[in-house]
């Protein structure tokens, strides 16, 4: 009985408890499947998970690869049933953690039955990759909310054009001025060369 409460035994019990929980952990492919079906884009687990092959396995960002401290983080993240808990799950990427933080695990699990509503439930002002397209708008179009170069090309163009308007205007002014100056310089060269040629042909003139 005493041996049962020894530190070594506690560790074993905790590990067993963890492995039992791990066995029941699954990614939630309903959202990915819905996005692939509605957009036709190839979307993999890296949309929300740290590893493109999902949470199960022994690769980086997968459960079998976690350190003890990361396992503790995972446990805290799993218990984030209400919004605003700021989870930092090591098996999720920034967008995955943002989802749980914004909705809470409870609401997120409920949405598995209606994956189309996930985007609507997200905060409208959040734009994790700062590409000018909100996460709520990126998700239903199958583009990654955490990759700046991924997004609807036309929306990205509009957002970046607005953002970089000053640089574009300056570049335009520099190009036009440069061409104007170069034009005058080259015309000057041409006139000088012609005068020189005329002089060579007719020195008296």
């Amino acid at each position: 009985m005493r041996a049962l409460y020894s530190p070594r035994c506690w560790k074993t019990t905790l590990l067993l408890a963890f492995l039992t929980t791990v066995g029941s952990v699954q990614a939630y492919p309903e959202f990915q499947q819905h996005i692939v079906k509605t957009t036709g884009r190839a979307v993999n687990c890296a949309l929300c998970h740290a590893n493109a092959d999902g949470p199960e396995g022994t690769g980086p960002g997968q459960i079998g690869h976690l350190t003890a401290a990361e396992q503790a983080e995972l446990g805290r993240a799993r218990a984030a049933f209400e919004p605003g808990a700021r989870p930092n799950s090591p098996i999720l990427n920034a967008f995955g953690n943002h989802l749980i933080n914004s909705l809470g695990k409870k609401k997120f699990l409920e949405l598995r039955l209606a994956p189309a509503q996930l985007a609507e439930a997200l905060p409208k002002d959040s734009d994790l990759d700062d590409d000018g397209i909100s996460d709520a708008r990126e998700l239903p179009s199958g583009t990654h909310p955490f990759i700046k170069s991924d997004g609807d090309p036309w929306l990205l163009f509009q957002a970046n054009f607005k953002r970089n308007f000053t640089q574009i205007a300056l570049a335009l002014a520099a190009t036009v001025s440069g061409l104007w100056g170069l034009g005058h310089l080259l015309r000057g060269f041409a006139v000088a060369t012609r005068l020189k040629d005329d002089e060579a042909e007719d020195p008296a003139h």
Binding site: R41, V43, A46, A52, H144, K148, S149, D150, N160, F161
Partner: peptide, 26 residues
């Protein structure tokens, strides 16, 4: 000059990668 401006605007505003699905760029 025109080509430079077109290229500069495209380079600044439209990531070439956005024309492909992101998992392909892993």
């Amino acid at each position: 000059g025109v080509a430079f401006m077109v290229l500069f605007i495209l380079g600044l505003c439209l990531p070439f990668d956005s024309l492909f699905a992101y998992p392909l760029f892993e």
